[in-house]
Structure formats: structure tokens, C-alpha cells
Lab assay of single mutants.
Amino acid sequence: PEDLERKVRELQKNGVSPEQIEKILRRDGVDEREVQELVKKVS
């Protein structure tokens, strides 16, 4: 979803590592495939 992507970009802009971003997304209940997609987009 659009807002998730925005969140991921925000986190990355704040210097959060892709690994941390993955953890955060998983903790928020984002589905694994979605997590991978989002992280791939920003890394």
C-alpha cells in the first residue's frame, strides 16, 4: 500500500537500516512478501 511505502521511505530517510525496517514491518503485521517488496524498493 501507498502509506506503507511512504513509511518505509521516511524510516530510510531517518537512517534506519533495511534490516530494522524489515523488523518494524513484520512487527506491524505486514505480510512477508510485502515486506520483501518494500525493502527492495528502498535498498
Score class of each variant (00 low, 15 high):
residue 1 P to V: 12
residue 1 P to Q: 13
residue 1 P to T: 13
residue 1 P to I: 14
residue 1 P to M: 14
residue 1 P to L: 13
residue 1 P to G: 12
residue 2 E to D: 12
residue 2 E to S: 14
residue 2 E to R: 12
residue 2 E to W: 12
residue 2 E to H: 11
residue 3 D to N: 08
residue 3 D to W: 12
residue 3 D to C: 14
residue 3 D to P: 05
residue 3 D to L: 07
residue 3 D to R: 05
residue 4 L to D: 01
residue 4 L to P: 03
residue 4 L to K: 03
residue 4 L to R: 04
residue 4 L to Q: 03
residue 4 L to W: 11
residue 4 L to M: 05
residue 4 L to F: 04
residue 4 L to Y: 06
residue 5 E to D: 05
residue 5 E to G: 04
residue 5 E to W: 14
residue 5 E to K: 08
residue 5 E to T: 07
residue 5 E to R: 09
residue 5 E to N: 05
residue 5 E to P: 03
residue 5 E to S: 05
residue 5 E to Y: 13
residue 6 R to H: 09
residue 6 R to I: 07
residue 6 R to L: 11
residue 6 R to G: 08
residue 6 R to K: 12
residue 6 R to A: 13
residue 6 R to M: 12
residue 6 R to Q: 12
residue 6 R to S: 11
residue 6 R to W: 11
residue 7 K to N: 03
residue 7 K to S: 03
residue 7 K to I: 11
residue 7 K to M: 10
residue 7 K to D: 02
residue 7 K to W: 15
residue 7 K to T: 05
residue 7 K to G: 01
residue 7 K to P: 00
residue 7 K to Q: 06
residue 8 V to I: 10
residue 8 V to W: 06
residue 8 V to C: 03
residue 8 V to L: 04
residue 8 V to P: 00
residue 8 V to S: 01
residue 8 V to D: 00
residue 8 V to Y: 06
residue 8 V to H: 01
residue 8 V to K: 01
residue 8 V to R: 01
residue 9 R to N: 04
residue 9 R to V: 05
residue 9 R to E: 05
residue 9 R to F: 09
residue 9 R to Y: 09
residue 9 R to K: 09
residue 9 R to W: 11
residue 9 R to T: 04
residue 9 R to L: 11
residue 9 R to P: 00
residue 9 R to G: 03
residue 9 R to H: 06
residue 10 E to M: 10
residue 10 E to Y: 10
residue 10 E to I: 08
residue 10 E to G: 04
residue 10 E to V: 06
residue 10 E to C: 12
residue 10 E to H: 08
residue 11 L to M: 10
residue 11 L to P: 00
residue 11 L to N: 00
residue 11 L to Y: 05
residue 11 L to E: 00
residue 11 L to K: 00
residue 11 L to I: 01
residue 11 L to Q: 01
residue 11 L to D: 00
residue 11 L to V: 00
residue 12 Q to N: 08
residue 12 Q to S: 13
residue 12 Q to P: 00
residue 12 Q to V: 15
residue 12 Q to F: 15
residue 12 Q to G: 04
residue 12 Q to A: 14
residue 12 Q to K: 12
residue 12 Q to D: 03
residue 12 Q to W: 15
residue 12 Q to L: 15
residue 12 Q to R: 14
residue 13 K to P: 00
residue 13 K to C: 12
residue 13 K to G: 05
residue 13 K to N: 08
residue 13 K to D: 07
residue 13 K to A: 13
residue 13 K to Q: 10
residue 13 K to R: 11
residue 14 N to E: 09
residue 14 N to D: 07
residue 14 N to P: 00
residue 14 N to Q: 14
residue 14 N to C: 10
residue 14 N to K: 13
residue 15 G to S: 02
residue 15 G to I: 00
residue 15 G to F: 03
residue 15 G to L: 02
residue 15 G to N: 04
residue 15 G to R: 04
residue 15 G to K: 03
residue 15 G to D: 01
residue 15 G to P: 00
residue 15 G to W: 01
residue 15 G to H: 04
residue 16 V to W: 13
residue 16 V to L: 14
residue 16 V to S: 06
residue 16 V to P: 00
residue 16 V to Y: 15
residue 16 V to H: 13
residue 16 V to C: 10
residue 16 V to R: 06
residue 16 V to T: 06
residue 16 V to N: 08
residue 17 S to M: 04
residue 17 S to F: 02
residue 17 S to A: 09
residue 17 S to E: 05
residue 17 S to V: 04
residue 17 S to L: 07
residue 17 S to G: 06
residue 17 S to K: 06
residue 17 S to N: 05
residue 17 S to H: 07
residue 18 P to G: 04
residue 18 P to S: 09
residue 18 P to F: 14
residue 18 P to D: 08
residue 18 P to W: 15
residue 18 P to Y: 13
residue 18 P to T: 13
residue 19 E to S: 11
residue 19 E to L: 08
residue 19 E to N: 05
residue 19 E to M: 07
residue 19 E to H: 07
residue 19 E to A: 10
residue 19 E to I: 06
residue 19 E to F: 05
residue 19 E to P: 03
residue 19 E to C: 07
residue 19 E to D: 10
residue 20 Q to V: 10
residue 20 Q to C: 13
residue 20 Q to N: 10
residue 20 Q to W: 08
residue 20 Q to S: 06
residue 20 Q to E: 15
residue 20 Q to R: 05
residue 20 Q to H: 06
residue 20 Q to T: 08
residue 21 I to Q: 00
residue 21 I to P: 00
residue 21 I to D: 00
residue 21 I to H: 00
residue 21 I to L: 04
residue 21 I to V: 03
residue 21 I to E: 01
residue 21 I to N: 00
residue 21 I to G: 00
residue 21 I to M: 04
residue 21 I to F: 01
residue 22 E to Y: 12
residue 22 E to A: 14
residue 22 E to T: 10
residue 22 E to V: 15
residue 22 E to C: 15
residue 22 E to W: 12
residue 22 E to I: 15
residue 22 E to S: 08
residue 22 E to F: 12
residue 22 E to L: 14
residue 22 E to H: 07
residue 23 K to W: 12
residue 23 K to M: 14
residue 23 K to N: 12
residue 23 K to C: 14
residue 23 K to L: 13
residue 23 K to Q: 14
residue 23 K to F: 12
residue 24 I to T: 03
residue 24 I to S: 02
residue 24 I to E: 03
residue 24 I to K: 01
residue 24 I to A: 04
residue 24 I to Y: 03
residue 24 I to D: 02
residue 24 I to L: 07
residue 24 I to V: 04
residue 24 I to H: 02
residue 24 I to G: 01
residue 25 L to D: 00
residue 25 L to P: 01
residue 25 L to A: 00
residue 25 L to R: 00
residue 25 L to I: 03
residue 25 L to V: 01
residue 25 L to C: 02
residue 25 L to Q: 00
residue 25 L to M: 03
residue 25 L to T: 00
residue 25 L to E: 00
residue 26 R to P: 01
residue 26 R to Q: 06
residue 26 R to I: 14
residue 26 R to W: 04
residue 26 R to Y: 05
residue 26 R to T: 07
residue 26 R to M: 12
residue 26 R to V: 12
residue 26 R to N: 03
residue 26 R to K: 09
residue 27 R to P: 02
residue 27 R to N: 12
residue 27 R to H: 11
residue 27 R to S: 11
residue 27 R to Y: 08
residue 27 R to C: 13
residue 27 R to E: 14
residue 27 R to V: 08
residue 27 R to G: 08
residue 27 R to T: 09
residue 28 D to M: 15
residue 28 D to Y: 15
residue 28 D to H: 13
residue 28 D to S: 09
residue 28 D to C: 11
residue 28 D to L: 15
residue 28 D to T: 05
residue 28 D to A: 13
residue 28 D to G: 06
residue 28 D to E: 13
residue 29 G to N: 04
residue 29 G to P: 01
residue 29 G to E: 02
residue 29 G to K: 02
residue 29 G to H: 03
residue 29 G to C: 07
residue 29 G to Q: 02
residue 29 G to D: 02
residue 29 G to T: 01
residue 29 G to F: 02
residue 29 G to M: 02
residue 29 G to A: 02
residue 30 V to W: 14
residue 30 V to T: 03
residue 30 V to S: 02
residue 30 V to K: 02
residue 30 V to D: 01
residue 30 V to I: 10
residue 30 V to M: 09
residue 30 V to E: 03
residue 30 V to Q: 03
residue 30 V to A: 07
residue 30 V to R: 03
residue 31 D to K: 04
residue 31 D to I: 04
residue 31 D to Q: 06
residue 31 D to L: 06
residue 31 D to C: 11
residue 31 D to F: 03
residue 31 D to Y: 03
residue 31 D to V: 04
residue 31 D to M: 05
residue 31 D to P: 14
residue 32 E to W: 10
residue 32 E to L: 07
residue 32 E to H: 04
residue 32 E to M: 08
residue 32 E to V: 06
residue 32 E to G: 05
residue 32 E to S: 06
residue 33 R to A: 13
residue 33 R to K: 13
residue 33 R to M: 11
residue 33 R to L: 10
residue 33 R to I: 08
residue 34 E to A: 13
residue 34 E to H: 11
residue 34 E to C: 15
residue 34 E to G: 03
residue 34 E to P: 01
residue 34 E to Y: 14
residue 34 E to K: 14
residue 34 E to T: 15
residue 34 E to I: 15
residue 34 E to L: 15
residue 35 V to Q: 02
residue 35 V to S: 03
residue 35 V to N: 01
residue 35 V to C: 03
residue 35 V to M: 05
residue 35 V to D: 01
residue 35 V to G: 02
residue 35 V to E: 01
residue 35 V to A: 12
residue 36 Q to C: 05
residue 36 Q to A: 11
residue 36 Q to S: 07
residue 36 Q to D: 05
residue 36 Q to L: 10
residue 36 Q to W: 07
residue 36 Q to M: 11
residue 36 Q to G: 04
residue 36 Q to I: 10
residue 37 E to H: 07
residue 37 E to D: 08
residue 37 E to Y: 09
residue 37 E to V: 07
residue 37 E to M: 09
residue 37 E to N: 10
residue 37 E to W: 09
residue 37 E to I: 09
residue 37 E to R: 15
residue 37 E to T: 05
residue 37 E to A: 12
residue 38 L to S: 02
residue 38 L to T: 04
residue 38 L to K: 01
residue 38 L to C: 05
residue 38 L to R: 01
residue 38 L to W: 14
residue 38 L to N: 02
residue 38 L to P: 01
residue 38 L to H: 03
residue 38 L to D: 01
residue 38 L to F: 05
residue 38 L to Q: 03
residue 39 V to H: 02
residue 39 V to T: 04
residue 39 V to E: 01
residue 39 V to Q: 02
residue 39 V to M: 15
residue 39 V to P: 01
residue 39 V to S: 03
residue 39 V to D: 02
residue 39 V to W: 05
residue 39 V to G: 01
residue 39 V to L: 15
residue 40 K to P: 02
residue 40 K to G: 10
residue 40 K to N: 13
residue 40 K to Q: 11
residue 40 K to A: 13
residue 40 K to M: 10
residue 41 K to F: 08
residue 41 K to S: 08
residue 41 K to V: 05
residue 41 K to R: 10
residue 41 K to P: 05
residue 41 K to I: 10
residue 41 K to H: 08
residue 41 K to A: 07
residue 41 K to Y: 09
residue 41 K to W: 12
residue 42 V to R: 03
residue 42 V to Q: 05
residue 42 V to K: 03
residue 42 V to T: 07
residue 42 V to L: 15
residue 42 V to D: 04
residue 42 V to A: 10
residue 42 V to F: 13
residue 42 V to P: 05
residue 43 S to H: 11
residue 43 S to G: 09
residue 43 S to D: 07
residue 43 S to Y: 15
residue 43 S to I: 15
residue 43 S to M: 15
residue 43 S to N: 12
residue 43 S to Q: 13
residue 43 S to W: 15
residue 43 S to F: 15
